[in-house]
Structure formats: C-alpha cells, structure tokens
C-alpha cells in the first residue's frame, strides 16, 4: 500500500503521519452524514487522530508498508470506531498520568488520556496479528 484506500466505512493508510489528514477528512465526512453535532464530530476526530498517531508511531513503528485501518460503525445511535495496527499492544495501566505534577510539562503522553476523556468507552483487543482499539460515542 502506498496511499490511502477507502472501502465503504473503512480507510486504510500506510504508516506515515502525512496521511492523518486523509483519515480526518474521511471520518468527519462520514460522521456529517449522520447529522451529528459539530462539537461531537470534533471530539471523535480528535480521538481518532490520537489513535492513528499511536498506531503509526508505536504500533507499526512508522514502518511505511505496515497499514493502519480505521473502520466506523453506526449502531443504535452509537458510533463505534476500530483503529487497527500490526503492533503488540501495551498496558494502558503502565502509562504515566499526564496530569501528575511531575508530568504536566512533558510534550508527549496525553493521547490516550484525551481519548478516554472524550469518548464513552475505550477498549483494546490484542491478538497475534496486531492491536485494535475500539472507541464508542453515544449520539443524542
């Protein structure tokens, strides 16, 4: 894969941050089709950008040929988004709290904290093939 591929409600990209904007364009475009409040769309878009960043840099170690897949599902007034990479996952509990005094001025380490704050749920599925993070957001 050398460029983003879209199929239905799924987009796959090579592991390079230059494609973050493609994922955002895709996700926001799909969500606008469901008449969702712009603020909620932004929260979801922010969360997806965090997870795709993590998938590229940590999951796939920025190996261009390794893909990141983002799939969006709409179930009973709830958006579910799956972000998959080829990495071995990690222990969320092992991540330092970014709001602890000693970490407040660090430039990195807030991504998943922000996702957990903005989304209704965040779950991790780790298999031998890779890691999938599933986020959900109820739509009023």
């Amino acid at each position: 894969m050398k460029k983003p591929v879209i199929s239905g409600n799924t987009i796959s990209i090579p592991s390079n941050q230059e494609f973050l904007a493609d994922v955002d364009l895709f996700i926001e475009g799909v969500l606008r089709g469901y008449e969702i409040d712009e603020s909620v769309i932004a929260d979801i878009a922010i969360s997806v950008s965090e997870l795709v960043n993590n998938a590229i840099c940590h999951g796939n170690k920025s190996e261009f040929e390794q893909s990141v897949k983002v799939c969006l599902k709409w179930i009973n007034r709830k958006v579910e988004i799956y972000v998959s990479d080829h990495g071995n996952g990690f222990k969320f509990e092992s991540i330092d709290s970014p709001i602890a005094d000693e970490n407040l001025m660090k430039e990195v380490g807030r991504g998943l904290f922000i996702v957990k704050s903005l989304m209704d749920s965040v779950d991790f599925k780790i298999t031998p093939e890779g890691t999938t993070v599933v986020i959900t957001k109820a739509i009023q």
Partner: peptide, 17 residues
C-alpha cells in the same frame, strides 16, 4: 484553529518552554 490533539498541546508546551 478548529481543533488540536495532544500533538498540538505538545507544540504549545514546547513553545512555552
């Protein structure tokens, strides 16, 4: 700015520091 994520916040902190 429509929105920023943790990368944007990191840039603000880097700039501040």
């Amino acid at each position: 700015v429509d929105w920023m994520n943790s990368t944007g916040l990191g840039i603000l902190i880097s700039s501040y520091t």
